[in-house]
Nucleic acid binder design. Structure first.
Lengths: 191, 191
DNA sequence: CGCGACGTTGATTTGCCTCAACGATTGTGG
DNA sequence: CCACAATCGTTGAGGCAAATCAACGTCGCG
């Protein structure tokens, strides 16, 4: 257990806490290092954990009725990842969360998160603001999916995730863009 | 100005407030009735207001570089509507918010909302939870756009918005589904 | 080195779009 | 309240972007 306040510096930048609050925070977040290929959440599992990404890369994907993978989200530095869809319908996940580049993450259970909200009300605000940003990002994504061609979506992707583009698999990008690997290959060729 | 606490009962169900807090809330929300066809926010405008829908129906759409409309969201009873994308990039809206069925709404400016957050911290939690739901809805929408055919997306739409389907225009639905009115017409025919 | 995973290329198919024309419905002024 | 126009929805013919299916390079790792 780290007692160097690193979690405070890493996750809750710009916020200040009492010693008592820091103790609470350190007791509910757990820092773990995960290897490429690790599955943090499997479709069908109970969703009871959220993840904060310090470094590395995760992806959240869904397998549809035809067996095809669809990447809903890449998780990079400073993003929170979970399957929110599960919270308000069933409790079972329809998503899989996979580590695609070795990562350092903080995990917290839903139960501990509720506890945290109740003990330190300012955490509500912190997550409200995080959610506003994530919401905006998704609103943009929907717009892009509706209005752009495959090639335009790829260009937008490169812009949105400039650093991960080289280090992740072709078919991860394709499944994020909603196209096949073959199509992505052809798009790249003509550039 | 209503002094019957109706806003508390309507928006902030399940929460309790002091008389002082109620006064603050009533001072920042404004209830208005808007007619079908009204534009609440125009693309290019400064985004400084959010809307809560008591009844009626709004839609948020974007016009792309080819002049085509894309409906990002329908706003129905108990939803909050705004252009979040604008908050974190430019302050100018890229969306238009249009009333498509006579509606009763509450409006609040961003400035007043900040004031409200500071005066009544539990409001942070209220909106955090609202955002979690909205986020989950968008996560599902992205999945649907990625994995379903036009016909399947239409069926999902009917399920998601069972009541508004009859009262809104064909081309609104088509622009939400990401297809043309002609395609939607053909999909309906074969059902 | 050799095998499996990943990426590319080609031929063909298909779902949806485009363009065009024609019904149906709605709203409005006389 | 009807007539007519404008808006909205439907239908058909043809085209295109991306999918599918199949085969073949290429890269990285045990």
């Amino acid at each position: 257990m780290q007692s160097d306040n690193s979690i405070i510096k890493e996750i809750f930048k710009n916020l200040s806490f009492t010693d008592e609050e820091i103790k609470i925070i350190e007791s509910v977040f757990h820092k773990i290092i995960v290897k490429k290929g690790t599955i943090l959440l499997n479709a069908g599992d109970i969703v009871d954990t959220q993840y904060y990404i310090l470094n590395g890369c995760l992806r959240t994907y869904h397998i549809d009725t035809h067996g095809k993978e669809h990447t809903v989200q890449f998780g990079i530095k400073d993003w929170w990842i979970s399957d929110y869809t599960a919270f308000f319908s069933s409790e079972k996940s329809i998503m899989t969360i996979e580590v695609i580049q070795d990562a350092t993450i903080y995990k917290i259970t839903e139960q501990d998160k509720s506890y945290l909200y109740n003990q330190i009300p300012k955490i509500d605000r912190f997550f409200r603001i995080k959610l506003e940003r994530a919401f905006a990002a998704f609103q943009k994504r929907i717009l892009a999916d509706l209005s752009l061609s495959a090639k335009e979506r790829y260009l937008r992707f490169i812009n949105t995730y400039p650093n991960i583009e080289k280090s992740i698999k072709n078919y991860h990008i394709a499944s994020y863009l909603g196209i096949t690997t073959e199509s992505l290959s052809r798009i790249r060729k003509e550039m």
